[in-house]
C-alpha cells in the first residue's frame, strides 16, 4: 500500500493556503463595499445648490459687483484719465513689454451682422473722397446727437484712440471705456466697466501701444482673442466688433521702426478675426497723412467725423 508522501501533503497545503488567501482578497475586492450614508434627497439638494451657483448670469453678477463705487479706490494703478487737454497730447507712454499672455481655447465662431458695404456704395465713395482730399464735411451738433442716440446701447472700449471719440464729443463718457497707454491685454477693467452697462454691442478701437507690449503680432492676436472671450463670458448676447490697428504717420514711422510694424499686427488681428468668426471693421482706408495730429499717432477731430459714420453703418445701427 503506498503511503501518502509527506512532500505531496506539504505541497498541496502550501498551494492551497496561497490560493485561499488570494481568493479571499479577490472576493473581498469584488463583493465587499464600504458603508456609506445614503440620503438621496439631501444629496440632490446639495448638488442643486452647486449647480445654481455655477449657472448664475455672469453679466448680472458683474453689475452687482461693480455696483455703486465705494468712496475709497483701492487700486494704486492710475485708472483715472490724466487731465492734460487733448491737444497737448505727446506720444503715448509705451509700457515695458510684459511676459506673453497664455493662449486660451478657441471660441465657437459667431456671426454678428457686419454690414459689408459694397465698394461702389455712394456713401462709402463720398467718405473716401473726403478722406483722400482731407476736406471732410463735419457733422452738425444735431447730427452728432443723432449718432449718440443710435449708439446708445453700444460700448466703445480701447485706449487713447477710443478716448479721442469722447474728447471730440462724438460719444459721452457713459459709453466710452478707455485706458490711456494701455495694451489690449490690460483692458480687463475697462471691459468689466463696459459690461456693467449691459450694452448690446461692443466695439474695440485700440492703437499702437501693443506694438511695444507684444514682441510678436501672434501674441497680440492671442491677447485680443482672450479679451474678446472675456466680453463673451460677461455678455453672452452682445455683438462684438473690432477695428483695425492704424499705422503711425510716415514721418513718425521713419524714426520709430517699432511702431512702423503696426500693419503686421493689424494683419495678425485680421487673420485671427476671420478664423474665429469675429467681426472686423477695416478702417485702414481712412489713413491720410494730413489727418494725423502732431504726434503722428492720433487723428484730428474730422477723422472721427467719418469714423463714427462708417463704423455705425458697419455695425448696422
Amino acid at each position: 500500500m503506498r503511503k501518502r508522501n509527506g512532500h505531496s501533503r506539504e505541497f498541496s497545503l502550501l498551494m492551497g493556503s496561497l490560493l485561499l488567501i488570494i481568493g479571499v482578497v479577490i472576493g473581498w475586492s469584488l463583493f465587499f463595499r464600504p458603508l456609506s450614508t445614503t440620503d438621496p434627497a439631501a444629496l440632490a439638494e446639495g448638488l442643486a445648490y452647486l449647480e445654481q451657483l455655477e449657472n448664475q448670469n455672469a453679466g448680472e453678477v458683474n453689475q452687482l459687483i461693480l455696483g455703486t463705487p465705494s468712496g475709497e479706490d483701492h487700486t494704486k494703478s492710475s485708472s483715472q484719465p490724466e487731465e492734460t487737454p487733448w491737444e497737448d497730447l505727446s506720444s503715448e507712454d509705451i509700457p515695458m513689454s510684459d511676459s506673453p499672455e497664455e493662449s486660451s481655447e478657441p471660441s465657437s465662431p459667431e456671426s454678428p451682422s457686419l454690414e459689408l458695404i459694397p465698394a461702389d456704395d455712394p456713401q462709402l465713395l463720398s467718405w473716401k473722397s473726403q478722406i483722400d482730399s482731407a476736406s471732410i464735411t463735419t457733422l452738425t451738433e444735431e447730427e452728432r446727437g443723432a449718432y449718440r442716440s443710435r449708439l446708445s446701447s453700444c460700448a466703445l472700449i480701447g485706449d487713447s484712440m477710443a478716448q479721442a471719440a469722447l474728447e471730440y464729443g462724438f460719444l459721452d463718457s457713459a459709453h466710452v471705456f478707455y485706458r490711456r497707454g494701455y495694451a489690449i491685454g490690460q483692458l480687463g477693467d475697462a471691459i468689466r466697466e463696459a459690461a456693467a452697462m449691459l450694452p448690446s454691442t461692443v466695439i474695440f478701437f485700440t492703437g499702437l501701444n501693443d506694438t511695444d507690449y507684444y514682441a510678436e503680432p501672434a501674441l497680440y492676436a492671442e491677447a485680443y482673442l482672450e479679451k474678446i472671450q472675456e466680453v463673451k463670458f460677461l455678455l453672452p448676447d452682445a455683438r462684438i466688433f473690432v477695428c483695425s490697428m492704424l499705422p503711425p504717420s510716415d514721418a513718425l514711422g521713419a524714426t520709430r521702426p517699432d511702431l512702423a510694424r503696426a500693419p503686421l499686427y493689424d494683419e495678425a488681428l485680421r487673420n485671427m478675426c476671420s478664423e474665429k468668426g469675429i467681426s472686423y471693421i477695416d478702417t485702414s482706408w481712412m489713413v491720410n497723412q494730413a489727418l494725423y495730429m502732431g504726434d503722428g499717432i492720433h487723428f484730428v477731430s474730422s477723422f472721427y467725423d467719418v469714423w463714427i459714420q462708417y463704423v455705425t453703418r458697419c455695425m448696422g445701427l
Binding site: 452647486l50 451657483l53 455655477e54 449657472n55 448664475q56 455672469a58 448680472e60 453678477v61 458683474n62 452687482l64 459687483i65 499672455e101 497664455e102 486660451s104 482672450e226 472671450q229 472675456e230 463670458f233 460677461l234
Partner: peptide, 15 residues
C-alpha cells in the same frame, strides 16, 4: 454674488 478669475487659464466663474 462674486466672480472668480483663474489667472493662469484666464477663465471666470461665478462659483
Amino acid at each position: 454674488p462674486y466672480m472668480v478669475t483663474d489667472n493662469t487659464s484666464h477663465t471666470k466663474s461665478t462659483s
